[in-house]
Amino acid sequence: MDIQQFFNGLTLGSLYALIAIGYTMVYGILRLINFAHGDIFMFAGYWVFFGYFLFKLPWWAAAVLSVIFTAAMGWAIERVAYRPLRNAPRISLLITAIGMSLLLEHIIIVLPWAGGIQKQFPRPDFMIRIFELGGARIQAVTIWVPVIAAVCLLGLLYLLYRTKVGRGMRAIATDMEATELMGADINRIISYTFIVGSALAAVGGILWGCRYPALRFDIGIIPGWRAFTAAVVGGIGNVIGAMIGGFVLGMAEIIFVATLPAYSGYRDAVIFAILILFLLVKPTGIMGKPLKEKV
């Protein structure tokens, strides 16, 4: 594999990892597959689009605001749609998440500045610059994405292992009721989880736009599914697993496309074949522990 493909794989893997974390954190706590997560990711691209073209903000300001607004959306979705169903059967929650996903997509379709047609994501110059590295031509974005993703992931690990709310997130994922018995406000911890997961998806969405600048209401669906697959392959509920799963899938996809370019249309088939393989051989994923039945 040449150096260019390596960076392509690293970039794609970073993007999947950033999205996969939101799936895995929410699943770890609520046992919910948050179908709206891919659309939250999609929305981040539109926030930049609105900020840049509609409000004429500098690109970096639009990007920062996008992360904030997207995180706020994640918070609001949990508050309005999921929290009232905390004690409802899981299936109600799952269907609500699907409904939320469709709602977000259709908000984009009906917005006059967005609509159902494809838009161009604004890319700053420093992202699309091309330079030579060891004889290969590398686009700056393929360096920026892994670097920014690494910073975000290290920040997340710091939050989880060195702060009080992070400790709360890890505790609540193993035993929500025991966490509540410690006097912890579990609603607050869950809100933080959605905020953090959505903010990371927003970073992923913005970087995705820099890499693949087509913007449409449905761009979150396929990356969402792939990232969810990454979360499962890594071991759903496990944050480090989601990171590893993201990189494994991103690399696998690029290797497949690079070695068999004529079959690149089958990339999703490869990804889901990996999913099926894991579900058959190691259903708990790379980092997953065998499920213990609660007695």
Binding site: R167, G168, A171, T174, A178, T179, M182, A184, D185
Partner: peptide, 19 residues
């Protein structure tokens, strides 16, 4: 109902979460 993945120290800190 201790938190099995948290260290003993972290378990104790969870105890004073609200303090």
């Amino acid at each position: 109902r201790i938190f099995p993945d948290l260290t003993v120290w972290e378990n104790l800190l969870m105890g004073c979460y609200a303090r």
